[in-house]
Amino acid sequence: MSSPVQTVLALTIVALAAGALVWRAIRSRRHPGGGCSGCPTDTFKERLRK
């Protein structure tokens, strides 16, 4: 794989990761409590949904 192709792919992944973080930040404004390694809130909510 040539270097420019790698750069394009890498930058696409970076953009996707940044987008995911922004999306998560917006979502967590509506549902605060998710994300911390010690916090059980998310798992409980998911279980209740199931």
């Binding site: 794989m1 040539s2 270097s3 192709v5 790698q6 750069t7 792919l9 890498a10 992944i13 970076v14």
Partner: peptide
């Protein structure tokens, strides 16, 4: 295993 480049570094 992978050629040098941005994707490998990432």
């Amino acid at each position: 295993s992978f050629p040098e480049g941005a994707l490998r570094d990432l």
